[in-house]
Design a protein around this nucleic acid. Structure first.
Lengths: 247, 247
DNA sequence: TTCGCAAAGTGTACAATTGACACAAAGAAA
DNA sequence: TTTCTTTGTGTCAATTGTACACTTTGCGAA
């Protein structure tokens, strides 16, 4: 009796993910190219899907993330619920929903998440809800399906606030990285320039990065030192509140 | 055809409110006394209800708040969605749900909100979901129905963080208040003592309070100056990011 | 081989903010 | 008039933030 609900979809609740990546220059978001329907153009949307009846919300978001990227154990945090009764009722969205949902008129509340991935780890996967996915720079995102632009903005805002107080930026970088890369990452997320010397001083004083005995090779300029992220220190910072990262 | 959904309840989605108040001494939460059922004790829960099909999430939270307190236009902010598939399945909770819900087994995802009210404005109302409500001090809250304790903790955490960067504490106070009252408010929310002189200095420098030509009367000690909240300055601070309130 | 290029890496001085700390003033009540 | 209780005030030292420019390294082109 309970089991009849297992692995049935809940038609009223979905999860959507804003997946951030960093190519050492720009902050990017992984978006789905929605198939054009009935004379409407191709449009971009966030990856997302209805949840299963027996599935926790976080699990649903993890599933979507994993189906699309092949990755597990990725930084993932809830942004919030979006439930405007008319969030799916634009004509272009309705046309598309008619093609894929049993009840395209059904009101769906979505729970939004954002996650941070190292773009090098990403391997495109065939997934149930997406044929093609692509990384789009944040400053090129201007229109998305449904209310996804609003969701994306809320996620970016949350990321900005979070990175000011917790060292989560490492999730966007490979294990070895240079301080210049980290510096650039903070600049593109916060949307403003940060003084190089002050930035380095702060990172080194907080001891969340650790210098490696290894340098860049083959670059046409002074090679930079590689660093790694100091996990011990990170955990203690998270525990102790770590109220002021200082940006 | 669309209209058949109007004002029908959505059986899968609810909204719950963590309503904070301040009695000039302690931080309080407005809780519902759930009727005892079948040998289970009285228990406390957050005010909440299923949402209507044509109702925005924020509207649903506002409705719950208004039905319970009689208040409109109150500070209200989303905490997030809580959707553990087993969040309603404790025996005591099921016994209670059987008495009030058509499908007590239905999985319900709830969207949590927190709000800040001036306790003096509060007038208890008869509401569809509550016979009696009462203010409980935060340090006396230890067990709540469903997953409401978890929700309450998340709301309190959000309030703590928010008050560090934005001057929202005024929502908990009457129009005229003393700096000592504001000081105490910050202490009970943040859960630690704050130096009196440093606190006053900061508030006055930020210019979000404005001195009135009025003093306390009838108190058996030096009467204190009344202040009011400077709304102009507040808005500009909100606009300009106001990144560091400094606690 | 030398020169130019491009990015890495480094220190100092001044301003602003934080945090610690103690005593006089006001009014009510006894 | 004395006592009680809470208000209200200033300074100094330590820390943190901010602004700012030149040398170093290695590659590649001439």
């Amino acid at each position: 009796m309970e089991s009849k609900n297992k692995h049935q979809l809940n038609p009223r609740i979905s999860a959507d993910c804003v997946i951030f990546g960093f190519d050492f220059n720009q902050l990017k978001v992984l978006l789905i190219e929605r198939e054009p329907v009935e004379g409407f153009d191709v449009s971009l949307s966030l990856p997302g899907d209805l949840i299963f009846e027996d599935e926790d919300l976080d699990m649903a978001a993890n599933r979507i993330l994993n189906e699309l990227t092949g990755l597990y154990n990725i930084f993932l945090e809830q942004v919030g619920a979006f439930g405007n009764p008319h969030r799916l009722s634009k004509a272009s969205d309705q046309a598309w929903l008619k093609a894929v949902r049993q009840k395209p008129n059904e009101r769906v509340v979505t729970i939004a998440y954002y996650s941070l991935v190292n773009m090098n780890d990403y391997q495109p996967q065939a997934s149930s809800f997406a044929k093609t996915a692509c990384w789009v720079s944040v400053h090129e995102i201007n229109e998305l399906a449904f209310d996804h632009f609003e969701i994306y903005q809320a996620a970016l805002k949350k990321l900005k606030n979070k990175i000011k107080t917790q060292p989560i930026g490492f999730n966007l970088l490979p294990e070895k990285f240079t301080l210049s890369q980290l510096h650039r990452l903070y600049e593109v997320i916060l949307g403003r320039t940060l003084d190089k010397r002050n930035f380095r001083r702060k990172m080194l004083k907080l001891k969340i990065v650790e210098s490696l005995d290894e340098k860049q090779e083959g670059v046409p300029h002074k090679p930079s030192q590689f660093f790694k992220f100091n996990e011990l220190n990170y955990n203690s910072l998270i525990e102790n509140g770590f109220d002021n990262f200082g940006f």
